[in-house]
Amino acid sequence: MRHKGINYAKYGYLFSLPFILSFLIFTLYPIIYTVMISFSDLKGAGMNEFKILEAPFDNFRLILNNNLFKTSLGNTVLIWVMNFIPQILLALILTWWFTSRVYSVRGQGAFKVLFYMPNIITAASIAMLYYSLFSYPIGAVNSLLQNLHLFSSPKDFLMDKWATRSIVAFIQFWMWYGYTMLILISGVLGINPELFEAADIDGASDWQTFIYVTLPNVRTIVLYTLVTSLIGGMQMFDIPRLFAMGGPDNATHTASIFIYTQAFEGPRFLNRAAAASMIMFIFIAILSAIIFYIMRDKEEEKIKQQRKLADKAATQKRGLSR
């Protein structure tokens, strides 16, 4: 890459510099700062001076033994699972229908636009909207259920632990299934069409083609949505906070709400909040690592298999030419 004796390499550094500086200032330094705070005695509004504790892991010990933190972590995982399972199932079914040649759903473009729409709308607004719709005794959902004679008197959904959790999970599901579907469809469209033709020639039914050809080929993409949804889900904040304020009886108190309330409400235990966010970071990292490990193994196997096949084909060719 040398031209007229000019060394262009320096521009590589120069043009990467803004990114690196911004990363150092706004991401790396805050991370290190958070780690320091998690080992310290920092608490109180507007406080900035702190010293490292004599027993630096005290905050971690405290958080790991804190019942509300355990409840919050449990809620986070529970609500994520309650939203992800129906979300991936519906997305897969819709993907099957939208990419099938037998069913070729009419008006697909419009459906995609509508299914994806909630994802682009401010989560804070959606949480407030559902809060208003489910409010008691005057709310659209209560009115509708009474008009349909399903309920005789209004129900206070937000006083019921499971109802509130389910609604939060439903909102997450409703906001994200369209996204997951679009990702899966694009994955299916990327599959080599010869595979589908081969399945057709072998007389596979539409369902069989989906199960034996489509699904194995989008497995990586399913895992990708699993990881991204998990990382996002473990940080769930806007919906449970604004819809239910973490209640009733802490039923929708998520890990992020825990961190937020520790740091920015009441006595402002910034040190404990920092420790809790480190624990969440490690928790998310371990979960992602497990999923990535599964993913990598499969990839390598695939490459090995392909190599074997290529070798075989090559030897066969050689055999033929002889």
Partner: peptide
Amino acid sequence: MIPAQVTTIGFFQFMLQ
């Protein structure tokens, strides 16, 4: 893959400073 919220506390304190 770094979750944005792990930096929140440090980011807030840094901006305050």
